[in-house]
């Protein structure tokens, strides 16, 4: 559980999420069924979550009890839920769903659509008359930055993440790639054609260079402790860099305010 303050109101609101280090290498995958996985290609920004939008769900308990369970429903309201005191008593941000699909044992399970991560299961939460208590609730994964975490997705880096030599971001639609090449050049390809490269900006190509989305919000190319280039976007904690499907590479704040762009839009 992470608690954060709402600066404007001076109030405390939490996020019903936690992360734990694992003993095995995690890949960008999630279960959409008991023995089937998908790759996380993108994360749904908080503000993109739309009333009556489709969203689907996986929970280990539910699928064990009923393999033919109903998986998909609609997004409903955005709101806040008070966890009972025996669960810690926190007030947490949630997104409601039209149907309450989950059950005990499903907490933390993924909410998604296609290959995009939306949230993780909170449980049942009913902001209206209990005579119709059908609404479920999930925690948007876009709020994970409040617990200093970020979902691994192939189209973005969140603060603390690095692209080492040989690694890449890929836009959700698969048409654009940002590659940290072994030769030290950071290159953005659109349909396999380079449209932006750090070398074109005068950055020297040195093998072993990596690029980091730093905790201070700056996106920096490093080689042996020497900063070679940056987006100069420091000063905003939690910034993330996203390779959009339109081909633009953009640094955003946690509120999705754009701070820097490669200006390689639009394909």
């Amino acid at each position: 559980m992470s608690l954060t303050s709402s600066p404007a109101a001076g109030l405390t609101v939490g996020v019903d999420a936690q992360q734990h280090q694992t003993a095995v290498q995690e890949l960008r995958l999630f279960n959409f069924h008991a023995n089937d996985v998908r790759e996380v290609k993108s994360v749904e920004p908080e503000h993109a979550i739309t009333l009556l939008e489709e969203v689907c769900f996986y929970g280990k308990a539910t699928v064990t009890a009923n393999p033919n369970y109903t998986r998909c429903t609609d997004v409903w309201f955005k709101g806040k839920c008070k966890m009972p005191s025996d669960y810690g008593g926190y007030i947490v941000d949630v997104v409601y769903t039209v149907q309450y699909l989950s059950q005990s044992g499903d907490s933390g399970g993924p909410w998604f659509h296609n290959e995009r991560a939306f949230g993780i299961t909170y449980g049942g939460c009913h902001p209206t008359d209990n005579q119709n208590p059908t609404w479920g609730a999930f925690t948007p994964v876009d709020f994970f930055h409040r617990i200093n975490a970020g979902v691994m997705a192939r189209d973005w880096l969140v603060s603390g993440q690095v692209l080492n030599a040989g690694q890449m971001l890929v836009s959700e639609d698969g048409r654009s790639e940002l590659v940290m090449q072994h030769d030290g050049n950071l290159v953005l390809y659109q349909n396999h054609v380079p449209v932006w490269a750090s070398l074109w900006l005068g950055v020297p190509m040195i093998p072993g260079t990596l690029v980091s989305m730093q905790l201070d919000g700056n996106f920096v190319m490093w080689n042996n402790g020497v900063a070679l280039w940056s987006t100069s976007t420091w000063g905003s904690l939690g910034n993330r860099i996203k390779l959009q499907s339109d081909g633009n590479l953009v640094v955003f704040t946690t509120a999705w305010t754009p701070l820097w762009a490669s200006n390689t839009c639009c394909i």
Binding site: S2, H20, G88, G108, A149, M152
Partner: peptide
């Protein structure tokens, strides 16, 4: 839930509900 990154990019994590 999902594979996540903590403050250390070299440390693999997995998410679940806070409660």
């Amino acid at each position: 839930g999902y594979s996540t990154f903590g403050r250390s990019p070299r440390a693999p994590h997995i998410s679940t509900a806070g409660h």
